[in-house]
Design a protein around this nucleic acid. Structure first.
Lengths: 245, 245
DNA sequence: CGCTGCGTTGAAATTGCTCAATTCAAGTGG
DNA sequence: CCACTTGAATTGAGCAATTTCAACGCAGCG
């Protein structure tokens, strides 16, 4: 099933018409990307919203001194750049971490969707706000936590987000990125991330190989990370609107 | 003049009716706060949007180990928590840094405003998106820059944001916070912030006393900070919508 | 006068970084 | 099947940035 629909339905009920519209949007214009390609570069003027159907994408900024900061990981079902309506130029880039399949949703189609049903509008707003909440938590993570906590925290986040869309089985989920990319996301050096991962590994808290992450005891890892999933707003919060719609 | 109107007009034209509505919202229900009070605490269920009319506010999370991370500084004209419609519980707190005057805008009134004119809706969206852009830049700042760059960068940001709303005169603007608060925003220790400020001071790049920041040569400081104001989206980007509205 | 909050400084400890090799796994072409 | 290449993970050693701890100064204020 369309992973976007699945995600939005955690938040609100969608009518059949909504779903048809979303399904149409998700199949209208499909584009494939290789690993390590830019979907949009910094400074570009975007014309479409990108809906990720398969693969992992990251939002990042490249610095002059060669470093880079990854600001989000985007998974199937995630939408990028709902901002195209309002902010003219991209102040960051979107790049692939794996081969990726994207549905391009044009400005007009998006507008049509927003006009069609306020529930859909609300659901897309929710998407934007949750993304912002994740950014805030990353700020805490990078600003105030030790390397060990930081790594553990991000692994917990990735795990919980995938769990929410049914992509965890047997305590295992996908994690198809490199240690360098993890370091770029955490504001750490790749070397130190490596050592930190070893520490988590020898403690038996994680087992990460073949692009797959296993967390035998999520509670334990969450404790190390001081992880509290509230900020992901994963609990179903939509009932309150059913009456109104 | 209402600082929110001033800010939104950087982005879009507002009709007289819009302005009346905004003016009404900004005067309906005024609340005063002392320094170091919470406007909303983490975990609370907010019912109003807060429009800051005077004073400085910060968005922060308190950690179990006593540390805290400040995630935004909010200045007069800034709106907090446009998210009340969608996210039930606050995943962070809003606290005052100075005495503060706030206009409380109820959910209903906000809804009325959004219904009244799509331009206003768009303008408020823009506010949300720019806030997100600032969060992203903070991530880069904390994740990848040295202490010197970090401090300089934040000072530049504060300066530019105030300049955009006419609050810079003679290369001086307000900065009514403590070094500890600056440290909490930057993910540094207060001691190190102190030393870093000294470094900037002896280089003649800044002069900060009596809650006032002077930057004699903004270019020079921006260079030290590797500061590029693009992410603030301060340039007038609204013309493109005039036709449509 | 004696708090109290804030800024300042020194010295030692720690964390995480850089540099430089080395290993390992998975292709790829001959 | 083997030599070669490549990208990623791993490790050690020395170093640099930042934190922590502990004092001290200073101004405002009851």
């Amino acid at each position: 099933m369309n992973p976007l629909i699945r995600k939005l339905e955690r938040f609100t009920r969608l009518s059949d018409a909504d779903k048809r519209l979303l399904q149409h949007a998700a199949t209208a214009r499909i584009v494939n990307y290789d690993t390590h390609q830019d979907i949009i570069a910094e400074g570009e003027e975007p014309t479409d919203v990108n809906l990720i159907l398969a693969g992992w994408v990251c939002r990042y900024k490249q610095l002059a001194d060669g470093g880079r900061q990854i600001m989000s990981f985007l998974l199937p079902g995630d939408l990028c750049d709902l901002n195209i309506f309002l902010l003219r130029r991209m102040d960051h880039a979107l790049g692939t971490l794996t081969p990726v399949v994207v549905a391009k949703i044009s400005r007009d189609l998006l507008q049509e969707m927003l006009n069609a049903d306020p529930r859909l509008t609300r659901a897309l707003w929710w998407e934007v706000l949750v993304t912002a909440a994740i950014h805030r938590e990353w700020l805490v993570n990078i600003g105030r936590r030790t390397a060990l906590e930081r790594v553990a925290h991000l692994l917990c986040e990735v795990y919980f987000r995938q769990q929410a869309v049914g992509r965890v089985k047997d305590n295992r989920c996908e994690l198809p990125i490199t240690q360098v990319e993890l370091a770029d996301a955490l504001g750490l050096s790749a070397v130190h991330v490596n050592r930190t991962l070893r520490e988590l590994r020898v403690s038996g808290l994680i087992d990460w190989r073949d692009k797959t992450l296993a967390i035998p005891d999520v509670e334990a890892l969450a404790q190390v990370a001081r992880f509290d999933p509230d900020y992901l707003h994963l609990d179903f919060e939509g009932e309150q609107f059913d009456a109104a719609c």
